[in-house]
C-alpha cells in the first residue's frame, strides 16, 4: 500500500535531496536545482493537481497525466546518476498508480472513501445488504443461464447500464457528502464491474 494516510507534513515543504532547498509537497522537481524529487506521500488527486472530488473530467486527467509522464519518464533520466534514475522510476510508478485510480470510477470512489477512513472492498468483511445481494444473485443466475453470445450480451448491456447509473449516483452521493450512501453505491458498482468482467470470459466460452 502506497498511501500512508493524510499527514500534516503534506503541506510543509521537504528538503531537496540534492541541494537541500525547500520543495513543496507533490512537486516533482526542485524549484532551485531542478533535480527530480521522490514521489513522497501526496495523494493521487494532488499528484495530478486535482482537489479531492469524484467529478473529474477524464480528458483533463489524461492531459495532466501525459504532461507529467513526459517530464518524469525514466527514459529521460537514462544518462543521469543512479539516484536520479531510481527517483524518476518511483515517480513514474506513483504517477501511473494515480492515473489508473482516478480514471476508473470504481477505484476513484473507493479511494475517496479510503481517504475519509472508510474501507470498502479490501476490508475482508461480508456484506448483508439484502437488496444489493439479491440483485447480484439474480444477475449471476442470468449470466449462468445464458447459453448463447446474444444472451450473454444482453446480461452485459443490462449490467453496463446499471454501472453507468451507479456512477451517476456516486457523483450525487459525493456531492451531497453522503459517505454512507457512497459506500453502498461503491459496493454495488464492485459487483457490477465484477459481473461485466466475468461475462467477458463467459462470452468466449459460449461463442
Amino acid at each position: 500500500m502506497r498511501l500512508r494516510g493524510v499527514l500534516p507534513r503534506l503541506t510543509t515543504p521537504n528538503a531537496c535531496w540534492s541541494c537541500r532547498g525547500p520543495v513543496p509537497a507533490a512537486e516533482p522537481f526542485c524549484p532551485t536545482c531542478k533535480a527530480v524529487q521522490p514521489p513522497g506521500q501526496a495523494d493521487h488527486f494532488s499528484r495530478l493537481g486535482f482537489a479531492r472530488t469524484f467529478d473529474l473530467d477524464p480528458k483533463l486527467v489524461e492531459r495532466r497525466y501525459f504532461e507529467l509522464q513526459r517530464k518524469l519518464h525514466p527514459d529521460r533520466f537514462a544518462t543521469r546518476s543512479p539516484k536520479e534514475r531510481a527517483v524518476s522510476q518511483a515517480q513514474a510508478t506513483s504517477l501511473n498508480e494515480a492515473y489508473e485510480t482516478l480514471m476508473d470510477p470504481l477505484r476513484r470512489a473507493a479511494y475517496l472513501l479510503k481517504l475519509s477512513g472508510i474501507e470498502t472492498i479490501g476490508d475482508g468483511k461480508t456484506v448483508a445488504d439484502p437488496a444489493l445481494l439479491m440483485e447480484a444473485m439474480e444477475m449471476r443466475e442470468a449470466l449462468a443461464e445464458a447459453r448463447t453470445p446474444a444472451e450473454v450480451d444482453s446480461v452485459v448491456s443490462g449490467a453496463r447500464r446499471d454501472a453507468e447509473a451507479a456512477t451517476a449516483q456516486l457523483s450525487r452521493d459525493f456531492a451531497s457528502e453522503d459517505l454512507e450512501a457512497a459506500k453502498k453505491t461503491t459496493l454495488r458498482l464492485t459487483y457490477l464491474d465484477k459481473l461485466i468482467d466475468d461475462a467477458r470470459a463467459r462470452r468466449l466460452n459460449v461463442a
Binding site: T126, V127, L133, T190, Y191, K194
Partner: peptide
C-alpha cells in the same frame, strides 16, 4: 444471503 465485496462473491 451474504456477499464478499472484495471478490464479488455472493452466497445463498
Amino acid at each position: 444471503l451474504v456477499g464478499a465485496p472484495a471478490c464479488g462473491d455472493v452466497m445463498k
